[in-house]
Amino acid sequence: MNDRPVHDDPAPLPPEPPQEGECCEDGCGEACVWAHYNEARAEYARTLAEWQARHVREPAG
């Protein structure tokens, strides 16, 4: 478990979606920028839930 002070534990940032024109629209499968983005979103959701759990235990103020 990480015992860093709250000020050293910033909330994770969501991944940026692919930019206009990054997707080839060719059904490339696993190498698709949208597949990578969806994986990053899942990782973000996991790390955000962990971060929120750590901060629920912190006293307010």
Rank of each mutant, 00 (worst) to 15 (best):
M1F: 06
M1R: 06
M1D: 06
M1E: 09
N2T: 12
N2I: 08
N2F: 04
R4F: 03
R4S: 12
R4H: 01
R4Y: 01
R4C: 04
R4N: 09
P5I: 03
P5M: 04
V6C: 02
V6F: 02
H7G: 00
H7Y: 12
D8W: 12
D9G: 00
D9Q: 04
A11N: 00
A11I: 01
A11Q: 12
A11W: 00
A11F: 00
P12M: 01
P12N: 02
P12R: 02
L13D: 11
P14D: 06
P14T: 03
P14R: 11
P14F: 04
P15G: 06
P15L: 03
P15C: 06
E16G: 01
E16P: 00
P17N: 10
P17T: 08
P17K: 14
P17L: 08
P17I: 07
P18R: 06
P18L: 08
Q19C: 05
E20N: 08
E20R: 12
G21W: 09
E22M: 11
E22S: 07
C23E: 07
C23A: 08
C23T: 05
C23Q: 04
C24R: 12
C24K: 11
E25G: 09
E25M: 14
D26G: 13
D26P: 00
G27H: 07
G27Y: 09
C28N: 04
C28H: 06
C28F: 05
G29V: 09
E30A: 15
E30I: 07
A31C: 07
A31P: 00
C32V: 06
V33H: 03
V33D: 04
V33P: 03
V33K: 07
W34I: 01
A35D: 14
A35P: 01
H36K: 15
Y37S: 05
Y37Q: 06
Y37V: 07
N38V: 02
N38Y: 11
N38K: 11
N38F: 12
N38S: 09
N38C: 05
E39I: 01
E39A: 15
E39Q: 14
A40K: 10
A40N: 07
R41M: 14
R41D: 01
R41C: 15
A42S: 14
A42G: 09
A42W: 01
E43D: 15
E43N: 11
E43S: 13
Y44V: 01
Y44D: 00
A45H: 08
A45N: 13
R46F: 09
R46Q: 15
T47E: 15
A49L: 10
A49Y: 02
W51N: 05
W51I: 04
W51R: 05
W51G: 03
W51Q: 04
Q52F: 00
A53E: 13
A53T: 04
R54Y: 03
R54S: 10
H55Q: 13
H55I: 02
V56Y: 10
R57P: 00
R57F: 02
E58I: 13
E58M: 08
E58C: 10
E58D: 12
E58K: 11
P59E: 14
P59F: 08
A60G: 10
A60V: 14
A60S: 14
G61I: 03
G61L: 10
